[in-house]
């Protein structure tokens, strides 16, 4: 039961922070299928910073990785922003193109850096395991779920709270949401649509980077090109299911997380051979499809989503 909850949360929350990134971008009117690439490149930069700057004994390793993943994700998101906003590319194509490029770049650079800096023939960056709450606050290490909870779970909750506040309670957030529904109104009111959208896409990259490095730590405790597991797409499904709103998206992510950990728990209970893990891996995807079947119809996407903003259009 305990692993069921902590595994579920450890999977759901990175997904959630990536989905918030998606919400930022899509609420500003930019379709963002590039989340997958951004989370991977964010994780790549974070892990790279760790292997280059520390020697495996640095206590703050995880936070350093998170910081750099955040920066790396934002930096990589610039490509999507420039392609979609400045170069007016098709946003769906741009997103997919960026994912393909990210997969290629991460694999290539990881191999190259391993070979040239460490003299190893590998495409992995070894990380330590993510710290748990119990190791940081000595008093609670015995508490059931909390003690073994990874530090990133509360961190992501705080980040999510801030992101929620900015999106719904500040002037910038209002502009951002207006850009996705009626960019001409924003323009008429003196706002800058292109700049707001640019910032929104960068924010989505930064948030995806955070999610990506959490996945890298949680799932494998290393970075390898197998980080591209479709979790970016999974978080897109979550945000569509959550109707482009933060709180319902959290619910969707939790559902995915518990569907996955529940599957593993059942497999363990029935003592199934390890080949069955392949079938369990399909659970989040099947749940996604089923949920989309039931909820896509009533969904309200931002009205200007995916449209190239054209000032002269009436």
């Amino acid at each position: 039961m305990e692993t069921f909850i902590s595994d579920g949360l450890s999977f759901a929350l990175p997904l959630f922070v990536i989905a918030i990134g998606g919400i930022y971008s899509e609420r500003s009117g930019i379709t963002n299928l590039a989340l997958e690439g951004m989370l991977g490149m964010g994780a790549f930069v974070g892990a790279l910073a760790v292997v280059l700057l520390t020697n495996g004994a640095f206590a703050g390793e995880f936070y350093l990785a998170m910081l750099f993943a955040c920066l790396g994700g934002a930096l990589f998101a610039v490509i999507h922003a420039v392609l979609c906003i400045n170069f007016r590319a098709n946003q769906v194509i741009s997103g997919v193109v960026i994912n393909i490029l990210a997969t290629a770049l991460a694999a290539f650079l990881a191999k190259l850096i391993n070979a040239s800096v460490f003299g190893q023939n590998s495409n992995k960056f070894q990380l330590s395991t993510a710290p748990t709450l119990g190791t940081i606050i000595p008093g609670i290490s015995g508490v059931p779920v909390l003690g073994k909870m990874y530090v990133f779970v509360p961190i992501i909750l705080v980040v999510a709270l801030i992101a929620w506040f900015i999106l719904y309670k500040t002037r910038f957030g209002m502009h951002l949401r207006a850009c996705g529904d009626n960019p001409h109104a924003v323009d008429a009111a003196g706002g800058n649509v292109a700049r707001t959208r640019f910032i929104a896409v960068l924010a989505s990259g930064a948030l995806s980077g955070i999610g990506g490095i959490c996945f890298a730590y949680y799932i494998a405790a290393n970075f390898s090109p197998s980080i591209f597991m479709g979790y970016g797409y999974l978080s897109i499904a979550a945000l569509i299911f959550g109707n482009w709103r933060v709180m319902p998206t959290l619910a969707a992510c939790l559902l995915f997380g518990f569907a996955r950990s529940g599957g593993y728990a059942v497999a363990k209970l029935l003592a199934l051979p390890s080949t069955f893990s392949n079938l369990i891996m399909t659970l989040p995807y099947i749940v996604t499809l089923l949920l989309l079947v039931f909820f896509s119809k009533t969904n309200r996407a931002p009205r200007a989503l995916g449209e190239i903003y054209d000032k002269g259009k009436r």
């Binding site: 769906v92 797409y233 499809l289």
Partner: peptide
């Protein structure tokens, strides 16, 4: 359902 999302899901399944 957005065909990109559904086809990715089917890919993994």
């Amino acid at each position: 359902i957005n065909e990109v999302v559904s086809s990715i899901m089917l890919n993994y399944i």
